[in-house]
Structures are given as C-alpha cells and as structure tokens.
Design a protein around this nucleic acid. Structure first.
Length: 115
DNA sequence: AGCTTGACCGACC
DNA sequence: TGGTCGGCCAAGC
C-alpha cells in the first residue's frame, strides 16, 4: 500500500502542532529539533500539507509573514498576541527575539531581557 | 546523470 | 533595510 503522507511529513506536522500559541518556530528550528532533513524539506512539507496545522507558527528566520498569506497570518498573530514589530517601512514582522520558540521546555520566556 | 527549483539560512556589503 | 552569494537537501524534468 502507498502512504498518502510520508513519515517525515507526519513528523514535521506533529512539531508544527506542538508550537504553542503566541510562539513560532523557524523552518530550520523544526528541522534541527527533528534531527533530520533541512529547512527546505520542512518548507516543502508545509507547502504541501501545512493546511492541516497552524502553519502561521512556522516561519522564516527573518520573521517575514508568509508571502501570499500575510493577511491571514497577521490575523492569527494578533489573536494570539504574538510579538510583532513594525519596520521603518511600516511592514509588520515577527519579533523573532521574543516569539521564537526552540521547542525545549515549557512555553514561556516571552520576557527575557529588554531591547 | 545533470540542471533547475523551492513556504530556507547565514555571511557579507 | 535590502540585495547578492554560496550552501543546503529533496523533488521534478
């Protein structure tokens, strides 16, 4: 029989669902936490099957909202109180320093050092 | 078997 | 802040 969902993809989605609200992980973080594959592989999985999980919590390291879904993503970020930051150009980007979640330990740490 | 592409990343300027 | 470059790994052609 054939698997509709590759085992690797299943693991990636599992991690994505594990990310607590108000927090995000980068593609690279997911790959590293998973211990296999790379950012691009994670990105591929998200592109294909990401619709079934909180895809807006998996982002690029630069914190730029997913192109093409910015509106949807920003709505979620606002609802989850995800740390955002406004650029000089006025573009909303994720405040990665505060929003990034390494996946280890409890989901806190939104307050560390200031600026 | 070789080249291109992609929901990437880090270094550099 | 933003553009370029090299590296990365798997899928498609």
């Amino acid at each position: 029989m054939s698997e509709e969902l590759p085992a690797y993809a299943e693991r990636v989605l599992e991690v994505a669902e594990r990310i607590p609200p108000g927090r995000v992980m980068t593609y690279g973080d997911v790959a590293e936490w998973l211990g296999e594959g790379g950012p691009r592989q994670v990105g591929r999985v998200m592109a294909l099957y990401g619709g079934a999980v909180p895809w807006w919590r998996v982002v690029r390291t630069d914190g730029i909202p997913l192109p093409g879904h910015e509106r949807r993503a920003l709505e979620h970020y606002r609802a989850e109180s995800t740390p955002l930051r406004l650029t000089a150009a006025g573009d909303p980007r994720l405040d990665m320093r505060r929003a990034r979640w390494d996946g280890s330990g409890p989901q806190d740490g939104r307050d560390e050092s200031h600026t």
